[in-house]
Design a protein around this nucleic acid. Structure first.
Lengths: 258, 258
DNA sequence: TAGTGGTCTAGACCACAAA
DNA sequence: TTGTGGTCTAGACCACTAT
């Protein structure tokens, strides 16, 4: 009862560890540098490996670290700002710019029910499913499934082009011809499905930002896109003016200044 | 060598578990229902508790489950769509609507360096820091820090109102008088700081969507807001028309239809 | 083949909420 | 007081990458 209980806040070890590591990253490591392996780090801090991993996982979630099986843990560069809102939208590849969407595949199938609801069509109506990958600085940052009801692009006969990138481009071209009256967007947290994970060079279940877009034209919804962005490396930007510019370097400078 | 290796895909146990649980949630559980406790569930599936927890964590990340210490694990309702883009912006509370931002506190301090860079001011310039909580259906879904350089609201003397909600409202009122020329926004994944976690009724480190907004008026940036939304319960919506409407129920219907 | 991160186990104790 | 989820340990083995 009379015992003084200084410093008994009971902060979890992994939380404290995360703070310590975060500060060490700011001051002692350069971007791309390799950290000691998990077993060594755990021993150095006197904790079990699982506890150390809990701290690393959080830092990876915050985009500070990058871990690759068989290789090691490296200090991640600041997140890339990827523009999402783009008023202009011509359904094109984007060429060599950093806005490049690269068509990969195109099949025809029935949409998942949730997508069908957004498209305002019956659940078993046929849709073109266009698979696209978004590249930034040569890295895949997003994988998209674009659902286009066959009724949205009536000019396109299913027979004239076989499945593949060429057919994807045909669908996009027809979509472009229809024009665009507006769009609706939502962003939420998800975990990568196996196929998305593969495209994004991540393990299944990796955290992703799921951007669902509804495209409007003429009488109704003309297409729905479900794009999954790597949450560890991406910062989605919206809005009128240019992208926000934040970097870890700036944060470091400030911390030292205070 | 000659052994047939059927079904050896080596899918991790927790991944398979997650799939099984997810399907069980769709078919056998109602929203709000309490699941068996972790020890029982682990025993039932013949795995260690840590493995079972790995599956539950993913489902919670996807907004399917809600876990509360001392209480149990319940089936989460579909994510709430919260509008973020709102063209109109009068800095008001929002009254009784579901868009309510509730001012909580207001102090004057120096901004963190990353924020100072966005505001385009020197790192040690004084700013008003307004703390607001966003409520939807009576639940706190976001906690915000709004940074307003004292130079942005010159009419406001630091002395006339003491710290507190009243002062926060004064700053917002002055901000409203300045008008707004545009805004810039970015969304990224983060983990809740201790103070945000407390406001959002989550544990520190919980996954959050960090929305950084830059407000422009007259000659430059007039304010910067950093808002953290609960990633487990929120779906951020943007855009011209109304919010997207997705529900788990619809997804269930579809799955059964296919 | 050696070294890395990823998965998994079978325990233990703690913090918290509700009865 | 009881039961829940949260933290932590000290191991083990696996999948993958590089050499």
């Amino acid at each position: 009862m009379g015992t003084t209980q200084l410093e008994s806040v009971q902060e979890p070890k992994y939380w404290h560890l995360k703070t310590v590591l975060s500060e060490a990253l700011d001051s002692d490591f350069a971007v791309g540098e390799i950290l000691p392996n998990e077993r060594d780090l755990a021993a150095r801090f006197g904790v079990a490996r699982a506890t150390l991993r809990q701290a690393l996982e959080q830092l990876e979630l915050e985009g500070r670290l990058q871990r690759r099986r068989g290789v090691g843990t490296t200090v991640a560069p600041p997140r890339v700002g990827v523009a999402v809102a783009a008023v202009q939208h011509d359904w094109a590849d984007g060429g060599d710019t950093d806005e490049a969407w690269q068509p990969v595949e195109c099949t025809t199938a029935t949409a998942p029910a949730s997508v069908a609801a957004l498209l305002d069509i019956v659940a078993d109506a046929p849709v073109h499913v266009v698979r696209r990958i978004r590249l930034t600085h040569g890295q895949a940052v997003a994988a998209e499934l674009l659902y286009v009801p066959t009724s949205s692009v009536p000019e396109l006969s299913a027979i004239d082009v076989p499945s593949g990138p060429a057919r994807a481009r045909s669908v996009l071209r027809e979509l472009h011809r229809r024009g665009l009256d507006g769009q609706d967007r939502s962003v939420e947290l998800g975990s990568a499905r196996a196929d998305d994970a593969k495209e994004l060079d991540r393990l299944p279940g990796a955290p992703v930002l799921v951007v669902t877009t509804r495209y409007f034209a003429a009488p109704g919804t003309v297409a729905v896109s479900v794009a999954t962005y790597r949450a560890d490396t991406c910062r989605l930007t919206f809005g009128d003016s240019g992208a926000l510019e934040i970097s870890h370097d700036e944060q470091v400078e400030t911390r030292q200044a205070s």
